[in-house]
Design a protein around this nucleic acid. Structure first.
Lengths: 138, 138
DNA sequence: TTCCTAAAAGAGAATAATTCTCATTTAGAT
DNA sequence: ATCTAAATGAGAATTATTCTCTTTTAGGAA
């Protein structure tokens, strides 16, 4: 991803091309694995020591609004608390045909919560089973 | 869930039975749908106007530590940002045998993120497909 | 039942991530 | 080159949560 490419992405969306926006997009493309705002700020300050943190948040918001970047909620809102839950999933080994049950109540909570907020239009969910495909370490 | 039942749950775990803990557990059992700490605080203050918010957080922590309550991370840590993603899932209608593709990049991010943190021991994940079972509205 | 003590609660300051406010600067259209 | 709406900077404000420290209390022991 060259500077030209990044600049074009901004221009295509009708966003003014500023050094701050260039730096932030570049940081996101270079920092793999879903960087936090803090990761991005730290990264950018190496080259732009004077950028305001408020600016980073504002730019990130603009990038998300314009679908140049996705906001990932590794937990969306605020902590919540609950008492119960159940269900199980499957780990499929692609090398050996082994299928292993996988119980993870935290994941179930996460999914239930996600779909409660998502509210799939026209579909009433009864159960969710994950097919997790991969390989068991030998 | 009676007061006695709630009291027993605390006692079984070796936790002192306090009015605050009783009230918080009762709030969690009555407030469906994963209440937030704020929901719980609001609910409890109807009956216990003087409870300290710090106490609520402390009690919730103790309840989670003692597995009386689960902490659900509708988003775990801090906002993160990314650029790409893909994959698709299936909606299975239990009444009609219809199977519909379901694309949801936000969900994929969520799952990828979840398992990156979870790190299933002995298993290397290649792909995750959700089987979402339910019914299409007629 | 009363006493004792570790544990719990209260009050509010502290912290951390994020948002807001408003004065100043700047990208880019004219 | 000029102009102006948009963007940035600086730091205060906000929000959820944690921490600190003093006071109170649950519940076991005398």
């Amino acid at each position: 991803m060259s500077s030209e490419d990044i600049k074009n992405k901004l221009t295509e969306k009708g966003l003014k091309v500023t050094p701050q926006r260039m730096a932030i997009l570049e940081a996101i493309y270079n920092l793999k694995n879903h960087p936090t705002a803090e990761n991005i700020i730290d990264y950018i300050k190496k080259m732009h020591p004077n950028i305001a943190t408020g600016t980073v948040y504002k730019v990130l918001g603009a990038l998300v609004d314009n679908r140049l970047v996705k906001k990932v909620k590794t937990e969306n809102d605020i902590m919540r608390y609950d008492g119960v839950m159940k269900s199980h999933h499957h780990l499929y080994c692609m090398e050996s045909d082994v299928i292993k049950d996988y119980v993870d109540e935290e994941l179930d909570e996460l999914l239930q919560n996600y779909f409660e907020k998502k509210n799939l239009p026209g579909f009433k969910i009864e159960d969710i089973v994950l097919q997790v495909k991969g390989t068991f370490n030998k």
